[in-house]
Design a binder for these strands. Structure first.
Length: 144
DNA sequence: GCCAACGTTGGC
DNA sequence: GCCAACGTTGGC
């Protein structure tokens, strides 16, 4: 099982929105990613992988954990390319649990052990990898 | 609102 | 295939 981090602007789609959807038994298609590195990360995700939900722009903090419930499939919002192919793909997710204490970007940057964290290193990448060590440390920082 | 980082596009 | 121009993301 692998770990990931996925960003969303909370005024567009927040962790609470995901919790509400999951509570209704629905899944969320993580559509809208238009970056090849991010897409490639989603392509290698497996059902059962877990991901941090990060609020970008507003909050700038990791607010909870979600899980992959469907592996990569064509993004229903993506336009076809000139050859009529779907280039963009995405996974489906559901919420797992919120962080009792959100972990802010400032805290992450101030933590020596997280110097290689992709969220910091590749700040514009919206779907990034999280190592097992980083995952455990961030869960602890989040109060889990 | 500005700007740094970086990805994409298109001319050559 | 290189590189300048431009667009987007996201932190500050």
């Amino acid at each position: 099982m692998a770990y990931w981090l996925m960003k969303s602007e909370p005024d567009v789609f927040s962790f609470d929105d995901l919790v509400a959807k999951t509570g209704r038994g629905e899944v969320e298609e993580w559509h809208g990613v238009r970056n090849y590195t991010a897409r490639n990360n989603m392509r290698v995700m497996a059902v059962g992988d877990e991901a941090f939900f990060y609020h970008s722009n507003i909050g700038k903090e990791i607010v909870g954990i979600m899980k992959v419930v469907a592996s990569a499939h064509p993004d229903s919002t993506a336009e076809l390319n000139a050859k009529g192919e779907v280039v963009w793909e995405c996974v489906d997710v559901q919420s797992v649990k919120p962080f009792p204490r959100p972990v802010t970007l400032a805290e992450i940057k101030a933590t020596e052990a997280l110097a290689e964290f992709e969220l910091v290193k590749y700040s514009r990448l919206s779907v990034s990898k999280v190592s097992e060590a980083e995952w455990k440390m961030l869960c602890k920082m989040g109060g889990l």
